[in-house]
Design a binder for these strands. Sequence first.
DNA 1: ATGGTAACATACATATATGAATGTATGTAA
DNA 2: TTACATACATTCATATATGTATGTTACCAT
Lengths: 212, 212
Amino acid sequence: MSTTSALKRPTQAERRARSRGALLESAARGLSRYGYGNLVLDEVARDAGYTRGALYHQFKDKEDLALAVIEWVNEHWMREVGAPAARQTDPVDELLTLARGHAAFCRREIARVVMALRLEFAGQQHPVGREIEQIWETGVKRCVKLIDAGRRAGSIPPGPPARAMALALLGALEGAVIALSGQSPDDELLAARAVTGVLGIDSSRALRSVTG
Amino acid sequence: MSTTSALKRPTQAERRARSRGALLESAARGLSRYGYGNLVLDEVARDAGYTRGALYHQFKDKEDLALAVIEWVNEHWMREVGAPAARQTDPVDELLTLARGHAAFCRREIARVVMALRLEFAGQQHPVGREIEQIWETGVKRCVKLIDAGRRAGSIPPGPPARAMALALLGALEGAVIALSGQSPDDELLAARAVTGVLGIDSSRALRSVTG
DNA sequence: ATGGTAACATACATATATGAATGTATGTAA
DNA sequence: TTACATACATTCATATATGTATGTTACCAT
């Protein structure tokens, strides 16, 4: 009875996971708000209800923490935004679903973590920057494929190179979503509309994508 | 002869202005690349060919320097982007000219200084943040007026509140331009297209705006 | 030419944040 | 219950960057 109360006494693993989660979430908020350089670990720990001791016990150093946050955010994004969008059969629909999903996803405060870090480490030779760059590049490649597919299908008109289009699309999407900072419900529509503009398709598709 | 060679020997005022200009430009590049917190003044000075001594002689402190850079960039933007766009009579044309102009303006490395600082100081109570916020707000207000005018004229369809539209427009514009990072000549077209999307108008207007 | 002042360089003092070292309490297994 | 490991707190050492104080050189008026 004393050993396996299982509900009352938290096991070590549970305890560890709980702490780690709290620290990750706090760090995500912090990175989103202040960026990497301005993030002070004492605040991160305090916000999570711990001290820096706990933080350095769970993570090797500041860099390790940031990388863990990035991985954490990316996984959530994939699950809540990337995967659902992939179910769309039409390339344009997938891009618009992506836009809407991203807007909804970014209503949480972790919204700007990717863009903030991407700006901060652009052109640097920092591990965190490399990780961010890789995630970004994955997104770009995905968009390039969809744009190519859409053009073959005739739903996206010819124009600038697919890569330039993809860069503009993702940039405009992130920029719009951040500027709107979670203003529901217009954020979704306007994010989708920005995407239609870059693609050069009728902006009413942005509206239709919510019903379909 | 020794006193007023006028062309060979630079006067004190000229000397001062030259140094100040070099320091401002270096700081603008630095802020654009690294943001405020990660900007190290020793590098700024060295990049301009001076030491921190020169910097602290011309500017009170780091904050003063950043504010001067912001003012400097804003003035240039107004002259090269804001004013020319204001000559357009049609609201939509003005918005599209703004987009194209901004893309061209941002081909220089100072591109990201506004967005970088806006992200870094969002929600903070820092003088630099306030200054940036005010400039941003001025832009938003200008867009709101143009959107309202366009709607009255019937060239922009009804939809979300004008302020939300303006936020999305500027956000998408900045995001797209930064992501494209000066990729001429596609940057102009795609920036304009992102704007048409947000406005909910035909994206071919973006193309037409270059000829008109 | 020469005293004075402005433009800059150099040297120093201080603050802040990271990371390491050490200490303590809580959980787990023999 | 005792021995040990893990989770976490606290303290300390170091590095880095800002800002200040002082020194040096270039310009300009008398």
